[in-house]
Design a protein around this nucleic acid. Structure first.
Lengths: 170, 170
DNA sequence: CTCCGCACTGAACACACTGTCCACAACGCC
DNA sequence: GGCGTTGTGGACAGTGTGTTCAGTGCGGAG
């Protein structure tokens, strides 16, 4: 996995895919002003390089009945890390788990059906021998939803110099 | 936006899309054992209901040169919330921002090109009048990457009873 | 009991896109 | 100057798409 960075065409392609995922290779090539083969090659390259992890559907937990999000910081008993991971991985409400520096040893993102339900989830999460302590922060608002495109623009050099070129669709 | 939940067919469809995003409606209908129109209708419904937020490419920040992830907890000066949001939204390395309960007022996810670069990012993030204090936790490992499918299985009832039915492709 | 709406089925249509291969030109590198 | 890489523009057959339609089975309302 060599350490190259993406170029402007990659950036524009990703941005295009981000805005109109169902666009297809052919239409993308038209919009970007390059040959279809080029788009196809770039896409293959991006996927092979791991830049594009996947194209899976982005499911909103709130829309399937889990509108409450929280972050829990966990303190783990020495040597219990692996066991705790397995435990948390088995809990569907745990959407994400990180090991972090500092006194809190792990940080995990949780969702629940309600604040009352959050109690159940937390009980299930921390009800495990290896977890010494936990503190939870409930998410109230999400001013910046998870995003990568600004970073892509920066990394691909789209920020410097010429404007992103999305012509009028009509 | 009424409060219904997704059923098993929705769950299976989402799971299928998650595994094989490029699958297409026709092939999906074959795999699920239903008519093409049904899949199409379900997909429309899921999209309309906001369950499927989008199909955008899932870009890995590490693969475009930002391998370091961190979470920063910010304490905000009274009344500066909106200004701080705008400030953070303008920083590409801020991938996500939440307002949370507790003394820390906001939690944000950052990425950087290196730990040294993280210092630059943090300086930029906290170098703003409205931010009183911040504490940063660097992510070391990510035992559970962001996932929603287990939750989808739970919400759609796929967990109870019959097994997910992915027949052999051949 | 009967009627209605709803969701699903299976089929059809014209159209567009996909994956793949080719020959050729432009570029940077040795 | 020769070579490998990358992009171009064209071609091909195969396949999926969006859409529409009539028909069927189910549950609820009257």
């Amino acid at each position: 996995m060599r350490e190259w960075s993406i170029d402007r065409l990659d950036g524009r392609l990703l941005e295009l895919l981000d805005r109109e995922p169902r666009i297809g290779v052919l239409e993308a090539s038209r919009r970007l002003g390059v040959a279809r083969g080029t788009v196809q090659a770039r896409l293959d390259r991006l996927r092979a390089a791991g830049v594009i992890r996947g194209l899976g559907p982005d499911v909103d937990p709130a829309a399937i009945g889990y509108p409450v999000t929280a972050f829990a910081t966990l303190e783990i008993r020495q040597g219990q890390g692996l066991r705790v991971r397995d435990h948390l991985r088995a809990v569907p409400e745990v959407l994400e788990l990180h090991t972090i520096t500092g006194e809190g040893d792990m940080l995990c993102r949780l969702v629940a059906r309600s604040t009352a339900d959050l109690q159940r989830v937390i009980d299930r999460v921390v009800g495990f021998e290896g977890i010494l302590r936990s503190s939870t922060a409930i998410v109230m608002e999400n001013p910046v939803p998870l995003r990568v495109m600004p970073l892509v623009r920066r990394a691909s050099g789209l920020d410097e110099g010429d404007p992103g070129d999305f012509g009028e669709p009509g």
